[in-house]
Simulated scan of single mutants.
Amino acid sequence: MTTLQTGLGERLISNDVNGKAFTELPIIDLTALSSPNLEDRKALAAEIQAACVDVGFFYIKNHGIAEEVLSTAFAQAREFFDQPLDKKMLVDLHKGDSFKGYAPLMGEQVDPASRGDVHESFDLGSDDQALGEGKKTGNLWPPAEDLPAFRPALESAWDSIMALGKRLFPLIALSLNLEEDYFAKYLTNPGSVMRVLSYPPQFGEVDLKEIGIGAHSDYECFTLLCQHGDVQALQVLNAAGDWVQAPPIPGTIVVNLGDQLQRWTNGVYKSTIHRAINRTGKERMSMPFFFGTDYDTLLEVLPSCISPERPAMYEPIIAGKWVEQRLAETYIKVDPVTGEKI
């Protein structure tokens, strides 16, 4: 195990268990997910296992989410981001204690060596998830009179992606030789967040202190990333230390593992470092859905992932405490006009 310091704290990079110097991400067809035949589902889980061990990232196709649901959400997000800054700041996430709402350009800093991340974002989640003592993760929505279709479009996307995420957990369980319903008890009210992101184009020489989003790993179980259009920005770090492009592929969603699943599997499954650099000359939009467990879940290494040669490398931690800590370290308060830290 090696470490990388990011704006989300010091991260263990699990590259000691068959990590590959991959040059592209695998594409996994989810058609067999609906098969009544257990052997078909186990075969699909074996593909998931190989991707989780070797790469930590993969595309999925035939995932069941209607393209119209995603395109409508992106269209409404575009309308939100096109508003004047003062309108967007009505739902500044710093107005609440839930890390939900709008963050302006440079309002995040996942890499502490950077000057901030060059994107805008709008975050939402479930209104009844408790995060931290006395806190409720309530959403901040723009006024309906300004954007009447915004909330319905994003909630529709949320519902569809949440349903897909729940269907993936049995595959994860099978891939770990667990019963298909093993994780069900941790998913009664999953602690998840969906974001829509707008990355302006950047020009000239690449300055790694000021890119779309700095090098980081995600902190939930896995992320379902919907990429809009054909704008390339996502880059994934392989075991050789090379950055591999992960371009949008029509009809697919990118899946990457997060820190919670890496902790659960004792580093056997990879929470892979990635970043976004938009040098295309066009705006990039994406919609990641960070799928986590119930916030009261105790994350401790699965017994099947411990051996005399590989003792537990992670201390147990409550999922909600982990998420809250990471969110607090990520968001910075900036002047939305100048981009300077406040």
Score class of each variant (00 low, 15 high):
G212A: 06
D230Q: 13
H274S: 09
N18C: 15
K166G: 14
T252V: 11
A312L: 12
H94L: 11
Q260G: 12
R151H: 08
G292Q: 03
W243Q: 14
E10D: 15
V69N: 06
A153R: 00
P200H: 03
C221E: 05
S307V: 12
L105A: 03
L174I: 11
R326N: 08
R310L: 14
L174H: 01
E67P: 10
T265H: 02
A144M: 14
I161D: 00
L187G: 08
F80S: 03
C226T: 05
E300I: 11
E120I: 08
G281M: 04
Y199E: 01
E68P: 11
M106Y: 00
Y314L: 14
Q232D: 07
N139F: 01
L178P: 00
D181K: 13
I342P: 13
L234D: 00
G339V: 03
I211E: 06
V244P: 02
Q83C: 10
G96M: 12
I28M: 10
V323N: 04
I342F: 06
P200N: 05
S304I: 10
D82N: 12
Y295T: 15
S34K: 13
D259Y: 01
K135I: 14
Y269R: 07
V69Y: 02
E309W: 07
E205C: 11
T2H: 13
Y269H: 10
V53W: 00
D230T: 13
A276D: 02
D159G: 11
W141P: 07
F81I: 06
T6C: 13
L171M: 15
V231I: 12
G204M: 04
F80W: 05
A163V: 14
I273F: 02
P248T: 10
A246Y: 00
G165W: 00
A239M: 07
C305H: 05
I211R: 03
G96C: 12
N278R: 04
T188K: 14
S126V: 03
P288H: 04
N238K: 04
N266F: 01
K100G: 07
S271D: 07
C226D: 02
G56A: 10
S98P: 09
R151V: 08
G64N: 12
L93I: 08
W322V: 11
T330M: 14
I277K: 06
I172L: 10
P112M: 11
L302R: 03
A144T: 15
G251Y: 06
C52Q: 05
L124T: 01
N177H: 07
E315L: 11
K209W: 08
M287E: 01
D335R: 04
G204K: 05
L38Y: 09
A157S: 09
W141I: 10
N177S: 12
P152W: 02
T265G: 02
K87M: 09
R11C: 14
L147H: 08
K87S: 09
S121W: 01
G191L: 05
K20Q: 10
A157E: 02
I277V: 08
